[in-house]
Design a protein around this nucleic acid. Structure first.
Lengths: 123, 123
DNA sequence: ATTACTGTATTAGTTTCCTAGTACAATAAT
DNA sequence: ATTATTGTACTAGGAAACTAATACAGTAAT
């Protein structure tokens, strides 16, 4: 899977999302050891420090574990993966709902609007 | 209505949202003339240039009209107001749906998730 | 013990964004 | 004509965020 990094958003965030997707989809199985920061950085054509930042974020969220001097690995806790995934989703939803309320929309309106758009997008 | 400006987000964006809300709610009726940039800036305790930036954004969106040397006024086109409101909403929804898809969620999941959260928030 | 490999701390450079200060241009009001 | 009031352009300052370069620290491997 190529990294496809664009310059319109912070690189480290794109790295985070990319790796999250790898984990969620099972491309990096539970407990797997990750390549070193430097190797992953080179693979993505990125400065090691930038990759480091992305990995630190992932560790903060509980998706990966750091073994100080012997590299990192994906967590072995399957429940943790799910928990993180839904937590991230909830944050996105909350942020979205707040924006809509700032615009003066009520809950009912929001739900019908998003239902309508979802129907359109299916076609 | 006080301006309640916080420092965690750009001031000019908060001004935009505040004025949008005034317009959408009818506090600034259609066709009404707005106070001058300097007056509005002073009212909000903000630099005139910052208010100017907010007003420019609102004009760009079609909510207000500039009369070069005799001030600004709210558009008289009621349909325009609605159009802008739903356009802004659609942008927010699209952005939101894309984020969720980047996380690996399907449309169905998103809809059920947001329905669940909406229910919880009502309580 | 030495070497090679791991993550990490520190610092600096770069860019981008936001805000503010000032001066300008046009016109309505007098 | 003059004055006051309107929006606007230009510039600079400052802050925040991101990326990169370098050096450090610990440990596994030899």
């Amino acid at each position: 899977m190529p990294w496809e990094l664009k310059s319109d958003r912070p690189i480290y965030l794109q790295l985070v999302e990319h790796i999250e997707l790898m984990i969620f989809s099972g491309a990096y199985p539970l407990g797997t050891r990750l390549p070193s920061v430097r190797d992953m950085a080179q693979d993505a054509s990125v400065n090691p420090n930038t990759m480091q930042r992305a990995l630190a974020k992932l560790e903060e969220d509980g998706l990966i574990i750091t073994h100080r001097t012997s590299g990192r690995s994906i967590t072995e806790d399957a429940r943790m993966i799910e928990r993180v995934k839904t937590k991230i989703a909830q944050e996105q939803i909350l942020e979205f709902l707040e924006k809509m309320k700032r615009l003066g929309f009520e809950q009912k309106e929001i739900l019908t609007l998003i239902n309508d758009m979802a129907k359109e997008m299916k076609q």
